[in-house]
Design a protein around this nucleic acid. Structure first.
Lengths: 344, 344
DNA sequence: GTGAAAGCGCTAACAA
DNA sequence: TTGTTAGCGCTTTCAC
């Protein structure tokens, strides 16, 4: 199984390798005599020639690929986003290198170095922290990049594709209020992420806008975005003397953790406490009790990120922009407060 | 942000680039005077040198990376397997290129060509079909490779890591029999995959072993591994005149489809029909009604596949081997037949 | 133990 | 329009 080289094609076509190179690249094809080009292309096809991407990359410092840095592929939030990105990029000949960081800064830094050495032409990061020097640094160096799902707080104004979290939280609060809830609490995600901080602030704001009690004790911070952290946070709320009949969780995993903590104490959903999630991750529509959650358009977030990155790759001078995609509330069987005693 | 090259290191250390290369590669370091080597390494560190993988790959035709070919990352079965593979490979300096094929042979073929051009040193395939000429071809060419989850039927005896599906099905049937079920049916997955065929045959065998009725009408074939196909298959079974009180599905998605079809007809699980899944995919433990399913060790399957691939990379002459990992039954609230009428 | 030379396969000045 | 030349950064014979 020998792979034809450009030189072999050139020899068979009776031209110099440089001419063959020109004839076989769309951008330079017009530089070469049409008949000659056709001959070269025919030979290339016969020999099953396709350019060696390694050699090309060494020469051009490009690679037709991008780096895709995510916390963890086993978080079901990410696969659909990844597919959205890949589908858009593949259509124009780009591949994605996927790297998991497990939220470890050093792993991420090493991955970025490694990807840059491989001449990736840009990055999509799903790992952004509000304070994220590495990303600021890359942005300052004009490395094409897009953030998905989360953004940084720095001055760099890095292009991003996120969901309208504030609107989503407002929808969730409104929904609960419409059901008759007046005592709502929040399981907030990590506050070093934009999603965690935005959703928390929006929660507090929505309570105020709806004239609901909004003492700071109505918010419990969770250390991670995990089910375990959600269960722990829910426990803290239940142990506090804050009365409530509904919880809005920072994401679906935290909401699942809330389910666990409630079940452990013999409390029922939504009879005793209503729980609303965020993200509408795959398969969350199957859980019991049915979970009302804020839907974000996963695949579309990825696809738009891919498009934004392509814009930058195609026109580096173009002023980068960010996108805020709409969220919707998916109601799956929440009800009003059945046990007013809990709202004492 | 300039990246130091080997030549710069060599110049600063006052040696020839070839010497620097030797000093900086573990395998050739012993060829060079210890003091010189130390000096070169010190300079390399000062300059933050790290070898350009593209140039190295062009020269050596290696790449420290492998290709990982899966049907679809959004199928929750795969991410944990991918993590298992990556964790093992990363520990020894390998990366994985992930490619989704969406079960399209042409996409897979193109991906393989592309990955080989990038000098991947081996492959892990999660896409194997029983009759899979492409994989046989690669095996015949002695390309290092491992199959995960599924295997081929060809003569090539390609190394694989799979779960003991037959044992898993036997466990499931035994469980249902112990609960009092005597009329069991099977939603079989695609029969061009080893998982689909093995589980179907094991089902039929288990019925026989338990002296249960086992007419061929007790098995409905599903075209794909999807929820939709499961719902359709379940519908076919319900419309037939085969009596049954329990269903064993070829995988969890088919089982979820069975849930859908049953719910649509107002039948309850497990009161009217018990459903058992297969694979124990992430989050399936949250669904309602609780799903009993056969657990396969996802991460470990991936990890073992990584190890098997490393064995081949490290010693190409070593006789390849395959692994069959144990399955366990995870019981989540199935009960015996409550409505004997259905078993008429 | 070290240096010289060559070349992996490709593309991009420059020259003709 | 085509060919010549050079080189991306590295490793690996071969010679000394």
């Amino acid at each position: 199984m020998h792979r034809a080289t450009l030189r072999e094609v050139a020899e068979r076509a009776g031209v110099h390798p440089a001419t063959a190179s020109r004839a076989l690249n769309a951008a330079t094809e017009s530089m070469v005599n049409a008949a000659t080009a056709a001959r070269i292309q025919k030979v290339a096809k016969e020999l099953g020639y396709s350019p060696n991407p390694i050699a090309r990359s060494l020469k051009t410092s490009r690679s037709s690929s991008i780096g895709l840095v995510i916390p963890d592929l086993t978080n079901p939030l990410f696969p659909p986003i990844v597919r959205g990105i890949e589908d858009v990029l593949r259509a124009v000949g780009y591949n994605a290198w996927i790297v998991n960081t497990d939220n470890q800064g050093d792993v991420e830094a090493a991955a970025v170095v490694s990807l840059r050495q491989r001449n990736v032409e840009g990055f999509v990061f799903a790992t952004a922290l509000l304070d994220h020097p590495l990303l600021e640094e890359l942005a300052a160096a004009s490395i094409p990049m897009v953030l998905v799902n989360r953004k940084t707080a720095g001055g760099a104004d890095i292009p991003s594709v996120t969901s309208d979290d504030a609107a989503g939280v407002a929808l969730a609060v409104k929904h609960l209020v419409d059901l008759g809830h007046r005592h709502i609490v929040h399981l907030a995600g990590p506050q070093d992420t934009s999603t965690g901080a935005t959703r928390r602030k929006a929660f507090r704001q929505a309570l105020e806008d709806n004239d609901l009690p909004h003492e700071s004790s109505r918010i419990t911070l969770c250390e991670t975005w995990s089910e375990e952290a959600g269960a722990h946070g829910m426990g803290v709320l239940l142990d506090s003397d804050t009365p409530f009949t509904a919880v809005i969780a920072g994401n679906d995993q935290l909401a699942l953790g809330a389910y666990d903590a409630l079940a452990e104490r013999g409390l029922r959903c939504p009879a005793d406490v209503s729980v609303v999630g965020f993200n509408d991750i795959p398969y969350i529509d199957k859980v019991f009790p049915p979970m009302t959650t804020v839907h974000i358009p996963h695949v579309e977030i990825g696809a738009e990120a891919g498009r934004l990155l392509l814009e930058q790759l195609n026109d580096p001078t173009r002023h980068p922009r960010s996108l805020l995609l709409p969220t919707t509330l998916v109601v799956r069987g929440s009800t009003g407060p059945a046990n007013p005693a809990r709202a004492a």
